[in-house]
Nucleic acid binder design. Structure first.
Lengths: 342, 342
DNA sequence: ACCGGATCGGGAACCGGTTCCACAAAATCC
DNA sequence: GGATTTTGTGGAACCGGTTCCCGATCCGGT
């Protein structure tokens, strides 16, 4: 493996000049630079990033912490972040984080605390203060995308307002018996995404003087997946009590599950049941699902750009995270919602 | 940031002893080891992996090259690999690789060629010889999981036999008009996964003296996704010509799309159309899809274990990649296939 | 009592870059 | 035309670990 010393020798210059020539920092005569570059090319020299980060303290590597890879939303974020990092010349180190447990501690105390990443992007996780501190104490910035991280900048859609909008859509169609399938899991945290969506739903229901409708309950926790929506949907729609005429689900995947459950129970969508989802899943169009769209791939890209800005690698755009501007969402009306039957 | 020298000073030993004590290599008196460890603990010392890899040449980092994150199969592989690497104390650096183009070259020539990874796992990609060489020339092992990599060890299911088994299942049910929705894309390579599955289908059809059935063609290329299967399904099933009574699809996602297309066209599954998929998608059970199961998460884990073995970190298990044993598959019969109508 | 090997610890070189500093030559200024 | 400033280059220190080599102890065996 050729080292920079070999390049220097071949080009007839010193190590320091070779370093300057290749990194572009400091004064180097154009002619010298070319000679060094040619020498590097000739012997197939590739700089060791380890050696460089050892002295500069920069690794050109960003850690991405994510609870699932195989949920549509998270996969999109990951792809968006990866693309953006790659084009900035950065590596992406993936940490697939369990909700909690010893592996989670290990990620924070061992993996992330080392000097291997310049920054951390935490996607859809609710971090504890201690966890945030572990990172920031080492001088590394951390950005929360979606989830919460006490004391760290956060980039997110306005979940509460978006959920309210979805609910409003159903209300305006004349529905009065409306159920909500909330996302289960870490949703215990009061400021979590799940809790905010449920709160937005409640806001509008209360404002309309309505109670969530459905048996055994008008608000049911469901796993954020298609099977999760299916089984919760069976409970809700299969109950012999008075059925809701509309459902607002915390994710499109849950919505697909509900639609499948409705189909199995012979309940027509939308004539007997309106369904509105949340996310803008790539299959929503195909299944005619009305939904609140968000743009996770773009969110991944924006998160990376924000972090690059912090690291001084930015293009000089606005810092959305500290500006506190919520990310984009849009109500997309399709064929799964219609006026309430009378 | 405390360095190992600080730990050594506090413990009253030399740098070298501190290093030995913390890494566990070489002779260190138990009492000394404890003193050093306690000192490290006290000042919150965390070793710099960069410094260590600089001298040892080991990075404890594996690169995973993957074409999609958001396809079920790949997401599962990624999760499996991540978990396995984490528990081995390794980092996973993700390279989301485009099919081809300048970014792809950049990944190989710049990102992977540097000394940042100890090994590369390429998932579901068909690598060119030049690309494999770039990696191996730097002394780094590369493992192909699924896809092909000329000259590199490969870990894969027997796609051809599995596809033949799926076809055989339909034949045994009495079907004679059978179509195949093949995976499109990189499938041009003769030994690619897509090509092998199609070949397995053809094998059995030929053996049974049958031609692939359907208009405009009995073998149609489809994007490996639900929308891809949907639109290919519409073409195949919507054609006024004689319809096939069974379809074998190259992936479960395509199969879901076909089922959706059949539903839209009023074609009952399985009474008017049997569908068999491929993969063992997590939703297959819910939709009653007969399929050839494979176990991508486990495959990711096995790939990691194989690589660990090569890196001398293994647990001493069998080296499946060089042994050439195909990975596990299983035919799971559900309600989407039934006897041919007569 | 003597010897050989196992055990323990320190000094120093080294991994492969970057950067500070010194110095010289060339360009710019008044 | 001398004083500055800018430009270009080399030497050497340094980042934070690991490891080689060497000397010192300690142990059991004879």
């Amino acid at each position: 493996m050729p080292a920079i010393g070999d390049v220097a020798r071949l080009a007839g210059v010193s190590k320091s000049t070779a370093s300057r020539a290749l990194s572009g920092r400091g004064y180097v005569a154009e002619e010298t630079r070319l000679r060094v570059e040619e020498a590097a090319q000739r012997i197939g020299y590739i700089a060791s990033p380890d050696a460089a980060s050892l002295v500069t303290g920069r690794t050109k590597n960003v850690g991405v912490v994510i609870p699932f890879v195989n949920r549509w939303f998270f996969g999109e974020v990951l792809e968006g972040a990866e693309r953006a990092l790659l084009s900035a010349g950065y590596d992406l180190t993936l940490y697939n984080l369990a909700i909690s447990g010893p592996e989670r501690d290990r990620v924070f105390d061992f993996f992330l605390a080392r000097k291997r990443v310049d920054a951390v992007i935490a996607v859809g996780v609710d971090l504890e203060e201690r966890e945030v501190d572990t990172i920031t104490a080492r001088g590394k910035p951390i950005l929360a995308l979606g989830g919460t991280a006490p004391g760290a900048p956060r980039l997110a859609i306005d979940d509460r307002a978006a959920a309210a909008l979805a609910t409003e859509h159903l209300l305006q169609l004349g529905h009065t018996r409306i159920a909500h399938l909330a996302g289960a899991g870490a949703g215990s945290a009061a400021r979590s995404v799940q809790a905010l969506r449920t709160a937005g739903f409640q806001d509008r229901m209360t404002a309309a003087g309505l109670e969530p409708a459905g048996e055994p309950s008008g608000v049911i926790q469901a796993d954020m997946s298609l099977p999760g929506g299916y089984s919760a949907g069976l409970q809700l729609l299969g109950h012999p009590g008075a059925r809701p005429t509309a459902v607002f689900t915390a994710s499109d995947e849950i919505a697909f599950g509900v639609m499948r459950a409705a189909e199995r129970l012979g309940i027509a969508v939308p004539s007997a049941l309106s369904v509105i989802g949340f996310d803008g899943h790539e299959h929503a169009d195909l299944f005619g699902l009305t939904t609140i769209e968000q743009y996770p791939e773009e969110q991944g890209r924006i998160a990376v750009e924000t972090v690059m800005e912090w690291l001084g690698e930015g293009t000089g755009e606005v810092d959305l995270a500290t500006a506190g501007v919520p990310l984009a969402t849009r109500l997309i009306v399709r064929s799964s919602t219609t006026a309430a039957p009378h």
